[in-house]
Design a protein around this nucleic acid. Structure first.
Length: 153
DNA sequence: CAAGTGATTAGC
DNA sequence: CTAATCACTTGC
């Protein structure tokens, strides 16, 4: 279960790889229709998982920053998430709406509230964009008991 | 083609 | 606080 995300909101967003309409080979998946997987390498060692969220030609997306593991433990940090899920460049550009390898499911979880705060590691974007509260997470400690998750075969 | 940099993490 | 580490981008 995805427990923390960050939103990257189009060409005007100075923290986005697509800032200024930048459309290089790397960010191309972000420009594709909603549900396209965008995986890229940061700091020479971490793959980061994103999904495009807007229409064809609109570079908006969501970075997956934390997930709940099968064990119920929370895997915190985008680099740790991909390591845990075994995600790398090979998934870049995949269509999560049709792929048999990568997809999203609504498991019907409900949460009391969604916390928000500034995005991480985007100071280079300047105070305004770095200050947008576009990081979202659920406080899993509020959960009552373990989630009853069953995993697809 | 060379050089700078980063949507992070681990370790001191 | 800083090293690790390299794809991607930009500049010459």
């Amino acid at each position: 279960m995805i427990t923390e995300t960050e939103a990257y909101k189009g060409p005007r967003d100075a923290a986005s790889h697509a800032y200024g309409g930048r459309r290089t080979r790397r960010v191309e998946p972000l420009y594709r229709d909603g549900g396209t997987v965008y995986v890229y390498l940061v700091y020479g060692m971490h793959w980061l998982l994103n999904f495009s969220t807007a229409g064809e030609g609109k570079p908006e997306g969501v970075l997956i920053r934390a997930v709940m593991a099968e064990s119920g433990d929370i895997v915190v940090g985008p680099g740790r998430v991909t390591r845990y899920l075994g995600i790398d460049k090979s998934l870049d550009g995949a269509d999560a709406t049709t792929s048999r390898v990568m997809w999203l499911e609504d498991r019907g979880f409900r949460t009391r509230r969604i916390m928000t705060g500034p995005r991480v590691g985007v100071d280079y974007a300047g105070p305004y964009w770095a200050g947008r509260p576009w990081r979202f997470w659920v406080d899993c400690k509020e959960r009552t008991g373990k989630p009853s998750m069953t995993w697809p075969e």
